[in-house]
């Protein structure tokens, strides 16, 4: 565990970490406790892949990345905050990223390291660190992509957590988050059914009051300005509460109980973000900083 001082200044919740440390050995049992996450992982990766390809195409249609190429993250520094057993970190690395996975649970990191050591394709560019995200701010390294999947609903002080993730990005960097919305449906599915009735997820994994709505995330980034950049907010315009696709995007992740699998809901699908959802936004580029400074 971390020194007490560190815990106090971080968004890590000690009880949550104790909970996940108890379950850490089960991370790679694809039929067990984390089977839902194993099934969700390809869908999260699909969103990351499609969004990055879309942005690359928007910016440079003439030499955009070949969409059939596997290594679309090649040469990028990627941070996975709250990596758990490394499900997402490993996938990011396979797409070519230089990945750093961090987690506040030491036993999670041990499991993640062991599992990655089995795969010769990961050893070169995947590293794990037992640290809270906040302590990375002290280091000079910043990232092209920061992901934090199914973590936001477990942290204390989500606003501080979000600004930490935001600060760890390079200008023009991508932030991907996935979490659960605070709706009656989400309570019914993720807590009442999954934990209490079916027991598919360990009781006490989720706390309803910690869930965050997509509109709250969007609102946060319409106000949030990177302190180091003093630029525009990350989201400048909303149309009926919806950001433009070049600034942010929210997509529902829907579990189909018949297929026992997840799917990525189409853009703007009605009611799709009432439960699990994935969120993307992007740090403003440096040019914008220069522009806004020039205007003053």
């Amino acid at each position: 565990m971390f020194p007490t001082a560190l815990i106090r200044s971080s968004t890590v919740n000690a009880a949550e970490i104790a909970h996940f440390s108890r379950l850490s050995a089960l991370w790679w049992d694809e039929h067990g406790e984390f089977s839902f996450l194993h099934k969700m992982n390809p869908v999260r990766m699909q969103f990351i892949r499609e969004k990055l390809l879309e942005v690359a195409y928007d910016e440079q249609p003439e030499n955009a990345v070949d969409p059939t190429k596997a290594g679309i993250l090649h040469g990028l520094d990627v941070l996975d905050v709250g990596c758990g057993g490394g499900l997402l970190s490993e996938s990011l690395t396979r797409l070519g990223a230089r990945t750093t996975g961090i987690d506040a649970s030491e036993s999670n990191i041990a499991i993640a390291r062991h599992h990655a050591s089995l795969d010769p394709r990961l050893s070169q560019s995947l590293s794990y660190k037992h640290t809270p995200a906040e302590s990375l701010l002290a280091e000079p390294k910043r990232y092209d992509v920061v992901c934090s999947m199914e973590v936001l609903e477990h942290v204390d002080n989500p606003a501080l957590f979000l600004s930490t993730c935001a600060e760890l990005l390079k200008p023009s960097g991508h932030l991907f988050l996935s979490t659960i919305s605070r709706t009656p449906l989400a309570y019914l599915l993720t807590i009442f059914l999954a934990e209490k009735v079916l027991g598919k997820v360990a009781d006490g994994t989720h706390t309803y009051s910690k869930y965050i709505k997509p509109s709250e995330l969007i609102e946060f980034f319409t106000k949030y300005r990177s302190p180091s950049q003093d630029s525009r907010p990350w989201i400048t315009r909303l149309y009926g509460g919806v950001p433009t696709r070049t600034e942010a995007e929210v997509r529902g992740l829907i579990f189909n109980p018949l297929q026992m699998g997840w799917m990525l809901a189409p853009k703007g699908a009605w009611g799709a973000t009432e439960c699990n959802y994935i969120f993307w936004t992007r740090k403003p580029a440096l040019e914008n900083v220069l522009n806004s400074m020039a205007q003053r």
């Binding site: 194993h38 099934k39 059939t68 596997a70 996938s91």
Partner: peptide, 16 residues
Amino acid sequence: SAVLRGGDIGSYTSLL
């Protein structure tokens, strides 16, 4: 499809 999503092609989830 698993490779394009960074999946481990030997895993049960990828093969399902």
